[in-house]
Design a protein around this nucleic acid. Structure first.
Length: 591
RNA sequence: CGGGGCGUAGCGCAGCCUGGCUAGCGCGCCUGCCUUGGGAGCAGGAGGUCGUGGGUUCGAAUCCCGCCGCCCCGACCA
């Protein structure tokens, strides 16, 4: 491709609206343009990157035995009512009505459609297992699109659905997708961490997220620096630690009730009573399967609803309204406490370790000071009930864990029979019994990989694409367009690299060298080859990798072969890395 | 949805507070000269419903009200 014939509208200045590095650089490099909030056009070279991601995803999904199909984005709303997600998806579901008043949703994901296909077409265990996938535009009415192409209302997702006859088959399908995802991100050349994610009622290790570490990431991941434990904040368990509850001092005075007029939040109460937030505790009331229950969490901690739900063995956990809370506890929200509480109570471990604590008095405008856990309220049910934070002990090895931000680029999930039961997707087993098919779902955010690659690969001058995702592998920059020797050398090199299967961009613009160098760095082409009068006079051509600080000269006479050799070395290096990781993964599974 | 900010040429901005001549500047774009290894220089030029609707006024980019859009923080994100 000749730059003069391409559409690469690079920008010298950063558009004011862009804040995230990936957003700024993709705009400046002429890869994307914004149409509206959460809606972006991919300009030619941005689209080339997107397409490279799609290609890698497709190859690895095919290699994993998944079957590609294409389902409609336009879906009858009845399907969503059938699965029950018309309610649970809520406002996030993009809806529209046709002129004849038919009600549709624009698919945010395709469990329903895919299950519908399978309930019609799969009748026998002999047809299982099967994994179907598609690469398609999804729609979500995001309340707040942000960070350029990182969170948009319309985005491209690879979504796959596995259908299995039993748990063993499900586990095999899941493992195959997990492995395929590792291959995909390895081949894309982006850094990633695999973390345990909240898995819903199935529990266990049935959900993993693939995260690209980045300060612009919207997800928080908790990692152990010592062992391999990693989980997102919603999921992360907290180790029991070695600390034990202090013995109760028999001489300790009874707790004291204090007036705290209109102080409702932890912040207000602690300010008023001049105590640290970590010396207070908050009582939160939930409805576990409809019944009121309470948890006591340290003032500076956050309750984790999944942990609370499991603590009470409930399948659903909701937040009650203010009136229900008052009826259950006898006090308005803001003054709740564990002393003389009438509903079931679970206490977070960190509260149980406190020698004394400030809590609500279960009476309006009253808090209690000097309340002693185990004396003034029971410690029958002490559990891990809160979100993990940096410094908490690892559940595996006890080491202090750290917190990092990440961009979720992939998610694998064992669904079980949620959709197959709701929608009647059954098959007959070898004994003639009708059984609900067991499902898994697996998503990859294609646009997000592009954004994450830029977040992970850029410097002050612009984007640094991994070779596998770059819109062009090589940029050839002839500096003197009127010099026939320069142009001939550029064309010869272009032809030979293209013949070897590389994508080549020739900057044939009549621009000063500085302009070409700045643009080359900005759009992030991995290998830059400069051909100039000066160099040719010395018999050399200049080669510079985007990742290197400096260029090196090679002999013009053997430039084609030498450049091809450098490209091959880099490409093979990435392949070797990917296969080494694959080997180490299968080795660690064998353990 | 709550809080904050912004909307003037393709991009970045000034002008607005304190209303008044033809709405400016830099980058980019077009023409010419010149220059050619890290976003050159000179000269000439094109390009604007000042987001939008209303109001106040002799007069509105500027003041007032409504609406729309965009960005950031938060809430939300099976």
């Amino acid at each position: 491709m000749r730059w003069s014939k391409a559409l690469i509208p690079t920008l010298k200045e950063t558009p004011a609206d862009a804040v995230a590095p990936s957003h700024q650089l993709l705009l400046r490099a002429g890869m994307v343009r914004q149409l509206g909030a959460g809606a972006y056009s991919y300009l030619p070279i941005g689209f080339r990157v997107l397409h490279k991601v799609v290609q890698i995803v497709r190859e690895e999904m095919d290699a994993a035995g998944a079957l590609e199909l294409l389902m409609p984005a336009l879906q009858p709303i009845e399907l969503w009512k059938e699965s029950g997600r018309y309610e649970t998806f809520g406002d996030l579901l993009m809806q529209l009505k046709t002129s004849s008043a038919q009600h549709f949703a624009l698919g945010p994901t395709h469990e329903e459609v895919c299950t519908d296909i399978v309930r019609d077409l799969i009748r026998s265990y002999k047809q299982l297992p099967v994994t179907l996938y598609q690469i398609q535009t999804k729609f979500r009415d995001e309340p707040r699109p942000r960070f350029g192409i990182l969170r948009t209302r319309e985005f491209i997702m690879k979504d796959a659905y596995s259908f299995d006859a039993d748990i063993e088959q499900l586990n095999a399908s899941y493992d195959a997708m997990y492995e395929a995802y590792c291959r995909i991100f390895d081949r894309c050349g982006i850094p990633y961490a695999i973390v345990e994610a909240e898995s819903g009622p199935i529990g266990g290790d049935s959900s993993h997220e693939f995260m690209v570490p980045s300060s612009t990431g919207e997800d928080t991941i908790i990692q152990c620096p010592a062992c391999s434990y990693a989980a997102n904040k919603e999921r992360a368990e907290i180790g029991a630690g070695t600390a034990t509850a202090p013995p109760i001092d028999p001489a300790a005075p009874a707790f004291e009730a204090v007036e705290t007029p209109n102080r409702r939040t932890i912040e207000e109460v602690c300010d008023f009573l001049k105590v640290e937030k970590a010396s207070s505790a908050k009582l939160l009331v939930f409805l576990a399967d409809g019944k009121p229950v309470a948890v006591l969490i340290r003032g500076d901690h956050e309750a984790n609803e999944a942990k609370v739900r499991r603590a009470f063995g409930a399948s659903s956990l909701t937040q009650p309204d203010a009136a229900t809370v008052e009826k259950a506890t006898g006090a308005p929200i803001g003054f709740l406490g564990p002393v003389d509480l009438k509903i079931p109570l679970a206490v977070d471990r960190s509260v149980a370790l406190m020698p004394s604590v400030v809590v609500g008095g279960n009476k309006i405008d009253v808090h209690l000071k000097g309340v002693i856990p185990g004396r003034d309220f029971a410690l029958d049910k002490v559990l891990d009930l809160r979100d993990a934070v940096a410094g908490d002990p690892c559940p595996r090895c006890g080491e202090k864990m750290v917190e990092n931000q990440g961009i979720e680029v992939g998610h694998v999930f064992k669904l079980g029979t949620k959709y197959s039961k709701a929608m009647g997707a059954h098959f007959l087993d070898d004994k003639g019994h009708e059984i609900a098919v067991i499902m898994g779902c697996y998503g990859i955010g294609v646009n997000r990989i592009v954004a994450a690659a830029v977040e992970a690969g850029h410097d002050a001058n612009g984007i640094i694409w991994p070779l596998a995702l770059a819109p062009y592998h090589v940029l050839i920059a002839p500096l003197q367009l009127t010099n026939p020797a320069v142009m001939e050398a550029a064309e010869t090199l272009e032809t030979s690299l293209q013949a070897a299967g590389y994508d080549v961009l020739v900057d044939d613009r009549d621009q000063r060298p500085g302009v070409k160098f700045k643009d080359a760095d900005l759009i992030g082409i991995p290998l830059r080859v400069v051909i100039s009068e000066r160099g040719l006079k010395d018999g050399t051509i200049e080669v510079k990798w985007r990742t290197d600080a400096t260029a090196h000269n090679i002999s013009a006479a053997t430039a084609n072969e030498a450049i091809l050799a450098e490209l091959e070395t880099t490409r093979k290096g990435m392949e070797t890395l990917a296969s080494e990781r694959k080997i180490s993964r299968s080795a660690s599974r064998g353990k």
